[in-house]
Structures are given as C-alpha cells and as structure tokens.
Design a protein around this nucleic acid. Structure first.
Lengths: 188, 188
DNA sequence: CAGAAGTGGGACAAGAACGTCCCGCTTCAG
DNA sequence: CTGAAGCGGGACGTTCTTGTCCCACTTCTG
C-alpha cells in the first residue's frame, strides 16, 4: 500500500510539462491536436498517450490545474468572509484572476464551445464567487438590485475580457479594470 | 448581362432556408457538421454544397446575414449622432442586440474559437460602436476615464452575456441589463 | 552498473468530415 | 406541356485525428 504508483522523477516532470504546454497551446488554439500538444511539449506522441490515455483525461488534468490555481486566488480573497468592503474585494479578485491571463482565457474558450461536463459541473460548483455575492447582498454591503447570478456572470465575463485585452501597461489595466468593476458594483 | 445569375425561386428559397437553419443549428452546436446543417435544413447534403461550395462560404453567408440584422439595429440607434444622452442610447443598443439572442450568441462562439478573418476583420470593422463611443467621449457626454476600446469590448461582452443569460422574464432582462449598462457608463 | 521504468518514433486500423461526382426524379417557368 | 434548372441521395476518394502497438534506445534508481 505504500504507493507503488509513484512515477519515476523524469516521468513526473514530463507529466507536468505536458499539462503546462497543453495549457499554453490550447490557449490560442483550442482545436489543437494531440500531436500538436505533444510537439509543443517536446515529447513524443506516444508518450503523451502514455500519460493521458485520451484527450479527455488531458483536459481533465488541465482543468484540475487551473482550478487549483484560480481556487487559491479566490480563496485568498473571498474566504475571509464579508468583513471588508465587498466592492474592493471583488475589484482585487477580478484583477488577480485576469492576471492568470492565458490560462483563464483558455478556460473561457472551452467553457464556450465544449459545453463540457467539466466546465459546467466543475467550474460553477467550485466557484465561490456566486455565493460570496449572495452573502454580501444578504449582509446589505453590496447592491442587491441586480440578481446574484447575473452579477457573477458579468464579473466572469469581465475577467475574461480583462485577461484578453491589451492595455497600455499593467498599471493601466489595474486602473481600467478597477474602475470598471467599481462602477459596475455601485448602483446608479 | 441582365443577370442570368438569377436562381429559380425555389432555389432562392432554399438558399435562405439553409442560412436560417445553419444559424439555428450552429447556435448551440458550433461544431455542427455540414451534414447536420443539411439535415436541419431539410435539404440534401449535395444541395447544400451546390449552394455553398464549402463550409467557409456558408459561414461567410451567415456572417453577412447577421451583420445585416445587427447593423440595422446599430444604425438605427447610433447613426443619429451624439445628440441624445449616450448612456441611454447605449442601454437601448445593448438590450436590443442582446435580443437578437440565438444569432448573436452564435457569432460570439465563433469569434471565440475560430479567430476567423471574418470575425476580426469583418466584425470589428463594421461595428460603429467603437467610433460612437469615441465621438461621445470627444463630445464630453460620456465618461472618458476608460479607454474607448476597452469600453466597447466590455459592452460587447455584456451583450453576449445578456443574450445567453436566462432572466426571470423579458422585463427583468431589460431592467437588469439596463441597470448594468447605466452603472458601467457612470463614473464612480 | 544492471535492470527496470520510461521514451521516441513509426506503423497501423478505425472513424469522421470534407468535398466531388453522377444519375434519375421533381419542380419551376415560359 | 416541355425543357431546363434544381434536387436527393448515394458512392467515392481524401485528409485528418484518434488511439493502439511494438521495438530499439535512453535514463533513472538502488
């Protein structure tokens, strides 16, 4: 039982390499082929299949990876509860997630055009954003003239847009995105 | 020269039928096959190919169609110039375009995952939204603390989101989307 | 250093979609 | 009514991708 399943170190590294490369490749070529991904990983196609028996497994691994990264960011911001000003919390969250850039962009692409089980079941379920908004609205610290699901959808789109858009520089991005979120969350 | 190229009436009708059906099919199955589209049109696959020699031609025709429809909406709102309150003009525009619903949704999907020439060259070029924002900002009637291209990107995303989201009813949609746009365009 | 674990590359079969062609039938237009 | 225009449907060849398998080679690990 002492986990015979341990891979050799190089294999383990390859595993990582593949996922990383796959994320990068799929980011701007969502239709990329397994062969493409293997090539981009600098790895043989058969090796790719050795690590991920089929395309789905690879996609699943990618989702797991990005969920982990995004989840960390989200948790760091939202888990504290609704103590601070939710608007600033959300501003920070949107900017940070947008900073994931390429990876988040990829996620969005796939959420669009594979209406994948991974995307819907996994994604929304793990996203505490919606429930954070719920809580903040209940606590009366966030506008509640807009439904929480609509608000969280819009914020999600905003993140995607911010990740993709080319601002003059990083600071301009912070400023524009921040101002946008603040306006959005402030009732007229 | 008197346009021998005129199709027979039934053929012409089929042409329309195909485009319409294709829009509907591709709306929720962007990967739909030519055979799928033919089937959905109630038309033989070979006839489909007779009308559109390849997939690209069909897509192009669809874009043309949607551009026409969306263009009409946009022109009706934006061509008047920047006379009225640009915020209300844009609120109306976003709600109307979102109302295109299925068709717009399809556009967005394809803009995402085919970074198609049609999508980028055609779409943005024809979208007077950006230039409208420019003019309104220049005229001092619209917030100019956010760059026009960012603003128009966000509005575009908002339209897509609104088209896709299921609100309680049509009126709720008008209300939520309207409030969102108004907030967005009102500096904090 | 020896053997196990992992790799690369190529060959292969299966399946999907594309686009082409043809032939006999239906429908329009004059 | 009749010829031309258009249609359906099926058969094809092609290309691309997937996933499998194998075998000789390299790289870890103990």
């Amino acid at each position: 039982m002492t986990a015979q399943n341990r891979l050799r170190r190089d294999a383990e590294r390859n595993h990582e390499t593949i996922v990383t490369a796959a994320i990068a490749v799929l980011a701007d070529a969502p239709e990329a082929t397994m062969a493409d991904i293997a090539a981009a990983s600098g790895i043989g196609r058969s090796t790719l299949y050795r690590h991920f028996p089929d395309r789905q497994s690879l996609i699943a691994a990618i989702y797991a990876r990005v969920f982990a990264e995004a989840g960390e960011i989200v948790r760091a911001r939202l888990d504290a509860g609704v103590t601070g000003d939710p608007i600033e919390v959300l501003v920070d969250l949107v900017i940070s997630l947008a900073g994931l850039g390429d990876r988040y962009r990829f996620l969005v692409n796939h959420e669009e055009h594979l209406h994948a089980k991974e995307a819907n079941d996994g994604w929304r379920r793990r996203m505490p954003l919606r429930s954070y908004i719920d809580r903040a609205q209940a606590a009366g610290t966030l506008r509640d003239d807009l439904p929480a699901d609509w608000l969280s959808l819009v914020l999600g789109r905003l993140i995607a847009a911010a990740a993709r858009h080319e601002f003059a520089d990083a600071q301009a991005r912070r400023a524009s995105v921040g101002a946008t979120v603040r306006s959005l969350l402030t009732p007229a």
